[in-house]
Design a protein around this nucleic acid. Structure first.
Length: 198
DNA sequence: TCGCCGATTGTCT
DNA sequence: GACAATCGGCGAA
């Protein structure tokens, strides 16, 4: 599997969020490599999106990576968990795509070890915090370019546009109109998408 | 520094 | 369905 070239990330954020569906997300660690197929994403559109950390161009140490080149990792810690975003938008345009769910592909033994509380394979990676834990993604991956080890994305299967389902994002109450924006995408019928999705 | 809050998950009722 | 876990970012003091 070859990493997606940097040019791939230079497309409109909503397009990128859809294009990432079906791609492989791979993480290599000293303990081994684990990977999965991206089956659910959400777009966060910087300046005009009240739900985005970069709303109104807010530029801080945390959001800094979103103002740079697309194709880098924006990791964010939420309560006890770590969430992975793919930086999108041209330089100076702070957009990102949140990876919400994966279909386990390789390194399943590792995932089972890292997700001892999961009752089955589906629960290894059917949520943003879960998939980060299953693959061993942490805050130390902040700012990492996604076209080289140890954390990278490669082209996967082609997804028929008719198989892409669209809906509102999850978990962003108190963000006004932004709650309703249809900026979440998933592979229709895939059983590894997050709960409440289908 | 202090206090509050959250793009979640897991457990308990 | 309710709520605790648990910690860094952010804004105010």
């Amino acid at each position: 599997m070859e990493p997606l070239e940097k040019g791939f990330y230079y497309q409109p954020t909503l397009e990128l969020a859809k294009a990432l569906l079906g791609c492989f997300l791979i993480k290599e660690t000293p303990f081994g490599t684990a990977s999965g197929i991206i089956v659910e994403t959400e777009a966060y559109m910087g300046p005009d999106d009240r739900a985005a950390h970069s709303f109104e161009g807010r530029r801080t140490k945390r959001t800094e990576v979103m103002f740079g080149e697309p194709g880098f990792a924006y990791t964010y810690s939420m309560h006890t968990h770590c969430l992975l975003n793919v930086v999108s938008g041209k330089i100076g345009q702070p957009h990102a795509v949140l990876v919400r769910a994966l279909e386990p592909f390789s390194g399943k033994e590792l995932m089972a070890e890292r997700r001892p509380k999961a009752k089955n394979e589906i629960e290894w990676t059917n949520g943003p915090g879960k998939l980060a834990k299953a693959l061993g993604i942490t805050m130390s991956d902040y700012g990492h370019p996604l076209d080289e080890p140890p954390l990278w994305i490669s082209k996967g299967m082609n997804i028929d546009p008719r198989d892409i389902a669209i809906g509102p994002r999850i978990g962003i109450q108190n963000t006004g109109e932004a709650v309703h924006y249809p900026w979440r995408f998933w592979i229709s019928g895939n059983k590894f998408v997050s709960p409440k999705t289908q």
